[in-house]
């Protein structure tokens, strides 16, 4: 049996990632979830956070938004609101988005609005976290991923 599997990450804007990989670590609702080839079929929701992909011994980090992941033995398909590589994240924009969301939450809002703002706050936080953690190595990865 092959040790790699197909990883597809799709957002409403684009197909963010589609390659054969060795391992992926997802931010599941119940905690982080590492997936290797041949995993049991599993369906889970994912929360905004960091997703780590291992491919040919190299690790890539992505910030993902809330969504769903379908895991079968030979493929992992992720539907997320957002998926950005560490080097694609604009930290300043994310920080600003966080501030805007926090300010908005301080005001009185309807239930629906609160849910929307909280979702964008979560996404901004995930971006900032991934960016900060990978600042040291992001330049090397950046060049690598831009050559695609």
């Amino acid at each position: 049996m092959s040790t790699t599997f197909k990883l597809e990450i799709v957002t409403p804007e684009a197909v963010a990632y589609s390659e054969q990989v060795d391992m992926v670590v997802l931010p599941g609702t119940e905690g982080e979830l590492g997936v290797l080839a041949g995993h049991e079929p599993l369906m889970t929701t994912i929360v905004p956070g960091e997703l780590r992909i291992t491919k040919d011994g190299e690790e890539t980090a992505m910030a993902v938004g809330p969504g769903f992941a379908e895991i079968t033995g030979e493929a992992v398909r992720i539907l997320a609101d957002m998926a950005l590589r560490a080097d694609e994240i604009d930290e300043a924009a994310a920080v600003e988005a966080r501030q805007r969301a926090e300010q908005a939450l301080a005001q009185k809002l309807s239930e629906e609005q609160v849910a929307t703002v909280e979702a964008s706050l979560q996404k901004a936080l995930a971006q900032i976290e991934v960016k900060r953690r990978h600042r040291g190595q992001s330049s090397a990865h950046g060049q690598h991923s831009h050559q695609k």
Partner: peptide
């Protein structure tokens, strides 16, 4: 043939 596992639960997902 394939039975999916659900996390946290089928209803939830």
């Amino acid at each position: 043939g394939v039975e999916y596992l659900f996390e946290p639960s089928a209803d939830g997902v």
